[in-house]
Simulated assay, not measured.
Amino acid sequence: MRAAEHCPCGLPQPYAACCGRFHDGRQTAPTAELLMRSRYSAFAVADADYLLTTWHPDTRPKRLRLDDRQQWTGLDILGSTGGGLLQNEGTVEFRAHYRAGGHDDTLHENSRFVREAGQWFYVDAL
């Protein structure tokens, strides 16, 4: 992905200034929603290391294999609870759209996040 292209997460910013800054370690996501968006973008750009790094150690798999035939095509944030700058827990409900095997599909999830030592982590789906 070229740095000037819009970020896969759907925000109207170039990838490098949006989720790219989290993926390359320049910054950490300040809210649960931005972590969720950056994780969606990590699926879109096939950054398995970022996904594992931002997955809570209590629920993180040992390894993660991404399907390079799956193309992530859009993200809709449906709602959230907590997860703000001054909070340590939150949820984000979303729909992630993708194309696989010539068919369009959607993943609908309400994800749970926690912040520990200033860093947000994905925990699991409710």
Rank of each mutant, 00 (worst) to 15 (best):
L66T: 02
L75C: 08
Q13A: 10
C19H: 10
D47I: 04
G118D: 05
N88L: 12
P61A: 07
R63V: 04
G101F: 07
G101A: 07
A32D: 07
H56S: 07
H103E: 14
C18G: 04
D49W: 01
G84F: 07
R37A: 05
G90R: 05
A29W: 06
L66W: 01
Q71H: 12
T54C: 04
E5S: 11
C18I: 03
E5T: 07
D58S: 15
T59M: 12
D47T: 08
D58L: 13
W55C: 06
C9M: 07
T54L: 06
A29Q: 04
D67P: 09
N110H: 13
E109R: 09
R63A: 14
D47V: 05
W55F: 04
T31W: 10
V92W: 01
M36W: 11
T28A: 15
V45D: 01
M1A: 14
H108Q: 14
Q27S: 15
C7D: 01
V123R: 13
A42M: 07
M36P: 07
F22A: 07
R112D: 03
R115Q: 13
Y40E: 09
Q27K: 15
G84Y: 11
C19S: 09
S80E: 14
V114H: 00
N110G: 07
H103G: 00
F113I: 04
D124A: 13
